[in-house]
Design a protein around this nucleic acid. Sequence first.
DNA 1: CGGTATCCCACCTGATACTG
DNA 2: CAGTATCAGGTGGGATACCG
Lengths: 126, 126
Amino acid sequence: MSPCPQFAADCPSRVLFDQIADKWSMMVLAVLDDGPQRFNAIKRRLEGVTQKALTQCLRKLERNGLIARRVIPTSPVGVEYAITPLGRSLQVPFRALYAWTAENLPKVERARNAFDGGTGAGTLAL
Amino acid sequence: MSPCPQFAADCPSRVLFDQIADKWSMMVLAVLDDGPQRFNAIKRRLEGVTQKALTQCLRKLERNGLIARRVIPTSPVGVEYAITPLGRSLQVPFRALYAWTAENLPKVERARNAFDGGTGAGTLAL
DNA sequence: CGGTATCCCACCTGATACTG
DNA sequence: CAGTATCAGGTGGGATACCG
């Protein structure tokens, strides 16, 4: 199986992957999967995210049709973000990835210890 | 479903995700899925990758136990990289993600055009 | 509240040169 | 061949301040 025999720069998979695989996108979608959320509510659940980074991430997700932005014209403006059906469909492969991390974290940690601890002897064991 | 009620910075999924979700890792694993490859052979198949970036990526994958590095003591040294069973297991969720990109690229492109073209009216359509 | 604008700095990048 | 070393330069992040 090789969908792209070579990974050209304009390979659709590459282009799209660059869009969805950043540090925060997956988590934002996971948060919004619980239901629509306000900006600061999302921010509170993503430990370590800055306002700037979150804003950029939300814009990108919105641009790609994965989330929807709705302005609530209250006294101090409110903005609500909601996951779209397209965004929800991306949750499926994302959850598969999450499951992999949960299942294989111990193995990765063991490999890392072997690599770091050894003088490079890790290559022998594999 | 919320495996992490909140995304703490030390959430195992977050930590591991940061390790595997960079620009090149997924493609390197896909290339090595065809069989062991030499450094420059991999480089040739990843259009746009620099030697430095590829070296860093291969080191990280090796450290995390996803690929194995083998030095072939020939006249000009040769180095062969091979995917490990652990790396191969990661291919499963990666392929699911690839399938999603292939299937949903048109929808994303349409959303993007709506967002870019419109004055922000894209929020209405969703 | 939900941003945008600004500054500043760390980092990543590309290019080049050099080594075992 | 497969790197490491180095340096210039652009990109992005963090902090702060300010606007609707």
